[in-house]
């Protein structure tokens, strides 16, 4: 069996096992369905209210993707600035370290007060959570460029543009992909948490209202959706990395 089909077998096995273990837990624990609903009830809820779930999932994904896109754009631009103009780093680093270390759950209410119940607070929370890991990794990757290659480029009279595209950026790609693995899933977590505070839509909102009305079936439904989203994100990144770093397996 090849490694790929072995890996898919593992995932398949897990997908089949989850409802079985779940049902076992329900039966053995004897907990009431309004505390621990079985997979049958949860899948029925998902089926009956699918358009509602889909809508809120879409809202959360939208917030996560927009925030994440901006985080990437800024992180990569600033990483390039850091590498080519170290004085920018000297100036910005203290700011970044302070912002990074304020827990984002503290920032979120302030953003809501300031910006109201628009999408902006959510974008900003997602941005804050994902910006720093991408920045740190891209900077490390650009700096990890092989000194011998840089010397060769210098002797060949390469311009900055050529050095960036042929040496620095290729060296940063593996680091960048490693950041995606963590940060892309983080963007969904951040979007959901941001929705806890103020939103009238999104998976976070669904969680809050389900809790208030003791709808355990909805809570478990959201959990399933979040798990599927997180896993698909992860698999997407892994697939993308395989494609971009094809040469490593050649």
């Amino acid at each position: 069996m090849t490694n790929v089909s072995r890996e898919s077998m593992g995932y398949l096995l897990m997908i089949v096992s989850v409802p079985i273990i779940w049902q076992l837990a329900v039966t053995l624990s004897g907990l009431q369905p309004f505390i621990l609903p079985g997979p049958g009830i949860v899948f029925k809820t998902l089926g009956n209210e699918w358009s509602n779930f889909l809508y809120h999932t879409g809202v959360t994904m939208y917030g996560a993707i927009v925030g994440y896109a901006f985080a990437n754009l800024f992180a990569i631009s600033i990483a390039i600035l850091f590498v080519y103009m170290p004085s920018v780093q000297t100036f910005l680093m203290p700011w970044f370290i302070v912002i990074k270390n304020i827990p984002f759950v503290v920032i979120a209410p302030i953003l809501v007060i300031t910006l109201g119940t628009t999408n902006m607070p959510k974008f900003i929370v997602v941005f804050l959570v994902t910006f720093f890991p991408v920045l740190a990794n891209v900077v490390a990757g650009l700096r990890a460029a092989d000194q011998v290659l840089l010397d060769r480029m210098h002797v060949l009279n390469a311009n900055k543009w050529q050095i960036f595209w042929k040496v620095r950026w290729p060296s940063a790609i593996p680091y960048y992909m490693a950041a995606h693995e963590v940060a892309f899933t983080g963007s969904i977590i951040a979007a959901i948490v941001a929705e806890f505070f103020f939103s009238r839509t999104g998976l976070g909102y669904l969680i809050v209202t389900a809790m208030e009305s003791y709808r355990a079936d909805v809570l478990y439904g959201v959990t399933l959706i979040a798990a599927v989203l997180g896993l698909s994100n992860y698999l997407l990144v892994v697939w993308l990395r395989k494609r971009l770093l094809r040469w490593q397996d050649a």
């Binding site: 290659l149 210098h154 002797v155 009279n157 290729p170 040469w247």
Partner: peptide
Amino acid sequence: VRRENKLGIVFQRAALVPSC
């Protein structure tokens, strides 16, 4: 002379781009 591309350089460690 460097600007006129008249220099060739070989280091101990091969200066090759791993993805090329």
